[in-house]
Design a protein around this nucleic acid. Structure first.
Lengths: 373, 373
DNA sequence: TTGTAGGCGTTATCAC
DNA sequence: GTGATAACGCCTACAA
């Protein structure tokens, strides 16, 4: 599927850039010295060191840093000076253990190949930036069993909240989370009874709207391509929305042109060719994600097909590329960064004590009619 | 710059998908019960509970889970049964504190907009998947000061190793890391004296090779576009490599066609138009990243420019889109997933005690000559 | 093979 | 406003 025209000239060897592993031998660390004669520990400066240096008790040093208002300004200044002089870095892990309050939250994404998920990640990372909570990342590879394992691992690591993708999860995942009693945010859809809260939109309605748009434009022989629905409840809902729109307008929904496809531009191209060979009368193809749709638009260009003259193409997500294709791609816009941001904010609010359970945030969607339909 | 042809029809209101926040009131958790009459804690099952349940001492339970070989099979079985019955999830944070051994590593990326960095992330996450270490993520937004803050935060959170992008860092970052004595891996370039180890390639040589390729193909009036070099040592090295190649072949390097550009397809399109208006005789443009180059190729299509007839275009990175453009983009291939994987593996090796400091892993590069040049 | 004692670095509790 | 004491949950060291 990949079109690599021309020769592929390796410069690695020419330019001395072949794989080299060299070790600068003498650069080993200086011998490790433990400040005190104790048995264990990093040898790292501790709060006790700071307290000693400042002539106060450890708890006062702790308060000076975490609850400055409870400490006399002079004392506080002494502690702050000691912190600076000793280059003290607090051990948040220890603090977290002592106060039994978490210091990180987790996000589990189904993939890092698709920019729609890294956009969500970006939104979440941004929202957490000044919160004091770190983000721990997991990739479930669209596998519920892997997701369950990740959830268990993250619980063991003491995360205070977890963000999941989609509404369908392994039973084990659900019982782990119920048992752990931590805030859970499901994203990308709006289950009626979320595990905790959820932020997303109606994949069914969005897909229905796009199918409706195609029908309105006069297309009657429509095909549908999505990811495998068995492992992806969003794709499943989009397929249902598409089917409902066709049924509502009395159009046939030919199973031979309702495809499941792997991910990628090449896969979109392949799906286009497959559909046009299986059913040449197809006048429009609705792809449930923009990467597939973009692959099809780019393939049409290579094949000399006119879009939408020979076949109309619609996508879903509104990735950056969509608006830059020729012709620009009709698609459904989803505010993915906003989704990630909202999900992270829900986690933060829950950690701050705001009532959380059952909240359902609908971020909506928007049909963007460009030139491929 | 964005080309949105056609109307933009919001379905949110039509389909009842407008923003809704509803709270399912009754779904609050059952009252929180603390197993024992103690003062603090989550109320979560602890190793002590498991030990009691199994009729052994806590340390035996600990060993049964972490060093099974040191425990009699029968005892181990009793502990395992207790773990299952109580749905015990270990507190790795506490274990980490007690053994003063880390349980997470950090990756700091300069951006989550560019897939080249999420590819690296994917490689790293993959390599860490079965390692027992979690990945904590930070986004520095190409800002050395933010990077320094993130490093400090991550050190406070007790990560065992840190992966950075590039070779240039704030002095504070360097002193923090030197002081912390934890493994650091720099990525995307090969500094002569890395902070710890590094995995990357010669940006200078790769860029030189691409410029050489353009010159070899007969182009003489070449322009160069990259990200702002002040905050990006890779872009700076690529610009130097380009300039050296031109100098070596006696070509003029016109400062008016050596541009710095923001990121994105739209920015690439703008750079193309800018260069052709500033210097219409330009016969080739070398973009230091594929997103800019792709934006230019797509813009050329819209503008009716022939590539490479009117202007040749070269990129850098070999993103997925590059090979699917029409014409397919000439670029420099970098194994980004391999880079992330190698970086993560270096961290793991260092954490396992393998000599680490000074190791420099060159992943090489490859000029992919496709049809835009 | 199993157990006892004590500590990892911090903070909650309660007293002064 | 400050401090002594104990606890967070687990593991290392040493002993039996």
């Amino acid at each position: 599927m990949r079109v690599d025209v021309g020769s592929s000239l390796s410069m690695s060897r020419l330019e001395g850039a072949s794989v080299i592993v060299e070790t600068v031998a003498s650069a080993l660390e200086p011998p490790f010295q433990r400040p005190r004669g104790n048995r264990r520990g990093h040898g790292r400066t501790t709060l006790a060191d700071v307290a000693r240096h400042a002539g106060v008790s450890p708890i006062t040093a702790s308060r000076a840093l975490n609850k400055p208002l409870l400490v006399a300004p002079e004392t506080r200044a002494r502690v702050e000076r000691a912190v600076a002089e000793l280059r003290y870095i607090p051990n948040i892990i220890a603090g977290s253990l002592a106060s039994s309050s978490p210091s990180a939250v987790a996000a589990i994404l189904p993939s890092l190949d698709n920019s729609i998920f890294t956009d969500v990640l970006k939104g979440a990372v941004g929202a957490l930036e000044r919160s004091g909570y770190r983000l721990v990342l997991g990739n479930s590879h669209f596998d519920p069993a892997v997701e369950a394992t990740l959830v268990e691992t993250f619980l063991a690591h003491g995360v205070g909240a977890i963000m999941l993708t989609g509404a369908r999860h392994a039973p084990q995942t659900q019982s782990l989370l119920t048992n752990a009693r931590i805030p859970v945010v499901q994203t990308w859809s709006l289950p009626r009874r979320p595990l905790g809260a959820c932020v997303g939109f109606s994949n069914f309605a969005a897909s229905y709207a796009m199918a409706h748009h195609l029908i309105e434009r006069g297309y009657r022989d429509i095909a549908f391509v999505s990811a495998a629905v068995a492992r992806n409840d969003r794709a499943a809902a989009r397929r249902r929305g598409y089917a409902k729109a066709l049924a509502d307008h009395g159009l046939v929904n030919d199973p031979s042109t309702t495809l499941e496809s792997p991910f990628g531009l090449a896969a979109g191209a392949a799906a286009l060719e497959r559909i046009l060979s299986v059913r040449p009368s197809t006048d429009a193809i609705f792809f449930a994600n923009d990467v597939l749709a973009s692959g099809a638009v780019l393939a049409a260009l290579r094949l000399g097909l006119r879009v939408p003259g020979d076949v109309a193409i619609a996508g879903f997500d509104d990735i950056e590329l969509a608006g830059h294709l020729m012709p620009p791609l009709t698609t459904v816009r989803i505010d993915r960064i906003g989704l990630g941001k909202a999900a992270a904010e829900l986690m933060l609010e829950a950690l701050a004590g705001t009532p959380f359970k059952g909240r359902r945030v609908d971020i909506g969607f928007e049909v963007i009619a460009r030139a491929t339909t």
